[in-house]
């Protein structure tokens, strides 16, 4: 297990180095370089030179990469070209919103998807199974931003049941602890804030959960079906074990293996979905920041964001892989 962990960690470092190299190369290959974006169109060559020197662009490429890497490790991605503020500050301000939204979404997806997939498998061929399967296929094929927008139109604008935008009703006082509003409200005892934040989270979280939910339901169903046909489940039945022991220890423990891995993979699409969902609900997470960075070609900001997301994605997948090794003893031996 230790060797497995060390090996995965090494792979992670290599992957991140490769990624930083890729990003750096991309950054360097941008048309005209970043200095053009930072100077007015009528800048003189001298101004241009001065800026290049200030940015260290006249140094050899490898020195530049080394500096870039060194700063990136210290989470220093430079200043945003649009706002002029440090990118790490911008990200730190906005990440909690995205994390909170993603957590809710993945919780919904797991909480609904796994039981639903299990039921669909057990009731294979019934209307429930059919609904779950076709529903998940449609879910996978529905653009997230469209679903988000429709939910907003129906439940916020037409029915008026839920707020249309933001994380809290504007003007609400709250105490910031973790940046996750619902959690903060519960910690500080400001239950009205927690409730308020939760109401604001429901629609975006549902929209964001749609694809993970669809995928988890499908995988769980397929996986449970496969496991139900396995000999060891028959053995468990032949032992006369209680139904819940068979379901938990013999069916679900095996059926969860592919599901866990898929959850790791879904995190990528979750980040992407968050960008889209947040912009529909003006949620104020990194989504809108990235949206702005993309349209305004704020390359340093974009690069910082991609690095942060890639690191967390790779790290989360490491956790998933490790838990996989923990769940399946055969993996430990194989690696």
């Amino acid at each position: 297990m230790l060797r497995y962990t060390v090996k995965r960690l090494l792979q992670l470092v290599v992957a991140l180095l490769g990624l930083s190299l890729l990003l750096f190369a991309w950054f360097k290959s941008l048309p005209g370089g970043p200095e053009n974006r930072m100077l007015p169109d009528n800048a003189t060559d001298q101004q241009r030179e001065a800026l290049r020197e200030a940015l260290g662009l006249d140094e050899p490429v490898w020195t530049q990469y080394g500096e870039f890497l060194g700063r990136a490790v210290r989470l220093d991605f430079g200043n945003s070209l649009s706002s002029g503020r440090p990118i790490s500050t911008e990200l730190a301000d906005r990440l909690p919103a995205t994390i909170e939204l993603s957590l809710w979404a993945i919780a919904i997806a797991i909480g609904v998807g796994i039981p639903l997939g299990y039921l669909a498998a057990r009731k294979r061929g019934t209307w429930l199974d059919f609904t779950a399967v076709s529903g998940s296929l449609i879910g996978i094929c529905t653009p997230v931003f469209f679903l988000a927008a429709m939910l907003k139109v129906v439940f916020s604008q037409n029915l008026g049941w839920l707020p249309t935008a933001f994380r809290l009703t504007p003007g609400t006082d709250y105490t910031d602890v973790t940046g996750l509003r619902v959690l903060d409200g519960l910690i500080t005892g400001e239950f009205d804030v927690a409730w308020n934040a939760a109401m604001h989270l429901i629609l975006p979280a549902i929209a964001l959960a749609s694809i993970p939910l669809a995928v988890i339901t499908r995988i769980t169903r397929a996986s449970v079906l496969e496991v139900l046909g396995e000999d060891y489940v028959r053995t468990a039945d032949a032992k006369g074990l209680k139904a819940q022991t068979i379901r938990g220890r013999h069916v679900m423990k095996n059926a969860m293996l592919p599901v866990v891995t898929v959850i790791g993979l879904l995190l990528g699409s979750l980040f992407a979905g968050a960008v889209l969902t947040e912009s529909v609900f003006s949620f104020g997470g990194v989504g809108s920041f990235v949206y702005a960075a993309t349209t305004e070609r704020d390359y340093p900001a974009l690069m910082g964001f991609i690095l942060v997301i890639a690191v967390s994605y790779v790290a989360l997948n490491l956790i998933v892989d490790l838990s996989y090794g923990f769940l399946d003893p055969r993996v430990r031996v194989r690696s």
Partner: peptide, 22 residues
């Protein structure tokens, strides 16, 4: 193949976003 594995680690929409931005 190692480079391909690294690229697989980047969420697809992010990759698309950075290319589109360029």
């Amino acid at each position: 193949m190692r480079s391909v594995d690294v690229a697989l680690a980047i969420p697809m929409l992010l990759l698309a976003l950075s290319i589109a931005a360029m």
